[in-house]
């Protein structure tokens, strides 16, 4: 790999710019392709660029055969994101585990007593109201949103933004009874059953989790399941 291409890929990753690297496997010739069609590096045949553009849009790395040569199209997308509403005990474990699993994590809690930086070393923490914070974050189909305060004042505004977004996973902490009441409040706000069915509640896979860390594992497991075993938001690349 040429140094200029490597440096550029590293800069794109830091800037969270989606980019495809295209490598001709015989010679090692290499070019980069951006969403707007801009290219960088060695010249790549137009037919391969066309294939790479759709691969970039659909987030799928793979080989492209053209004129007897094999080109590898490698999609480098910014990390998947996880927004956690509620800087509670479970969140301390969840934020760390999600980071290890490759997510860019943001913890949101307007209660400053909870949202202390010391409680979340090296995690991004916002003390905005959840709806404001999420509107800034602009959740997309590569974003998961989890609410953990079980305080309607804080969780509900977050869920309202989440349900209007393309977030691939929405989960909400609370017992079956708490969740039923939550759904009723959202129904009263005008959300239909199809929208409400997007909320995973009680949050996480049922693995008998008790401790904050175990509950975090069950949540990560459920997010992974939705990401890998459903059609949308699949991210095959490492």
């Amino acid at each position: 790999m040429q140094r200029a291409v490597l440096d550029r890929l590293i800069a794109d990753r830091a800037a969270k710019t989606p980019v495809a690297s295209i490598t001709e496997l015989g010679s090692g010739a290499q070019g980069l392709l951006y969403l707007d069609g801009t290219t960088f590096g060695d010249a790549i045949p137009g037919e391969v660029i066309q294939e790479a553009r759709s691969a970039l849009a659909s987030d799928r790395s793979g080989p492209v055969e053209q004129g007897g040569r094999t080109y590898f199209v490698h999609i480098h997308n910014p990390p998947m994101r996880l927004a956690v509403v509620g800087a509670v005990h479970i969140t301390q474990a969840l934020a760390e585990m999600a980071t290890v699993a490759g997510y860019a994590v943001t913890v949101i809690d307007p209660r400053r007593a909870f949202a202390q930086a010391e409680r979340f070393p090296s995690i991004k923490v916002s003390t905005e109201w959840p709806d404001d914070a999420l509107n800034v974050l602009k959740p997309d189909r590569r974003t998961a949103i989890v609410t953990l305060t079980h305080d309607p004042k804080i969780d509900d505004p977050a869920l309202e933004v989440a349900l209007k977004s393309d977030a691939f996973y929405i989960g909400s902490l609370g017992s079956t009874r708490t969740h039923a009441k939550r759904l009723q409040r959202l129904r009263d706000k005008g959300f239909d059953e199809r929208a409400l069915a997007r909320i995973h509640g009680p949050v996480g896979l049922d693995i008998g989790a008790l401790s904050p860390a175990e509950i975090a594992i069950s949540i990560i497991a459920e997010i992974t399941k939705i990401r890998r075993m459903t059609g949308d938001a699949r991210d095959e690349a490492a």
Binding site: R3, L9, G102, Y103
Partner: peptide, 17 residues
């Protein structure tokens, strides 16, 4: 650590440097 968040390309650059 060895996980999905690791920075393979960044490591390549720093080892090379």
């Amino acid at each position: 650590m060895n996980h999905d968040a690791e920075d393979i390309l960044g490591t390549a650059a720093s080892w090379r440097a």
